[in-house]
């Protein structure tokens, strides 16, 4: 159990540092700024207390907001991911979710990509809606959210492949 906590703290610090030092300075095609830190919220232990999970997701986002001077947009986006994860899990993994034994590395590759992609799209839709904060630019928001989602999901899948399996 304590091993699990240490692992999550390390993952939190690692992803935040990589986000701040590497991905915030990245501007692919002058357009895409991937936000792979959201992987922390996506792969947070499924068996954890739900209130704790919501609160930690909020704090993760707020940390990014503090570094980026962005008010509360990361926090709100992470909160949406945390709140909608059970629904997405049921949708992607189906019945095995009922046994509370879902692990990202246990499903098929296709399931893992789909799961990450859906949650990343949710995060980015909320994120860019709040960042632009103007209903008239809805097409711009959608375009930016979808294109950035592809970039973020790509890095998230890469990270999850790189760092999973070691514990088994």
């Amino acid at each position: 159990m304590s091993n699990n906590i240490v692992l999550n703290i390390l993952r939190f610090l690692g992803l935040i540092i990589v986000q701040l030092y590497v991905f915030n300075n990245m501007n692919i095609f002058g357009y895409i700024n991937p936000l792979p830190y959201v992987l922390f919220v996506i792969v947070f232990p499924f068996s954890a207390n739900r209130s704790l999970y919501l609160f930690l997701a909020f704090l993760t986002g707020l940390t990014l907001d503090m570094f980026g001077n962005s008010g509360g947009i990361h926090a709100a986006a992470c909160l949406f991911v945390a709140f909608s994860r059970p629904v997405v899990t049921r949708f992607v993994y189906g019945v095995s979710y009922e046994y509370n034994a879902v692990k990202l590395s246990k499903g098929t590759f296709y399931e893992r990509v789909l799961f990450i992609l859906i949650l990343v799209v949710i995060h980015h839709l909320v994120f860019f809606s709040l960042e632009v904060f103007n209903i008239a630019s809805i097409l711009y928001i959608l375009k930016k959210a979808l294109i950035t989602s592809v970039g973020t999901a790509l890095f998230c899948v890469l990270f999850s492949i790189l760092f999973s399996g070691r514990s088994e």
Binding site: R50, S51, L54, F55, F58, G61, L62, D65, N69, S70, G71, G72, I73, A75, A76, L79, F80, A82, F83, L130, F133
Partner: peptide, 22 residues
């Protein structure tokens, strides 16, 4: 409904921060 309420509460806080930042 404690989780839904917690969600709404935290969402409210983040929205207040967001509106302030704009």
């Amino acid at each position: 409904y404690k989780n839904a309420l917690l969600f709404l509460f935290l969402l409210l806080i983040s929205l207040v921060f967001t509106v302030q930042s704009h």
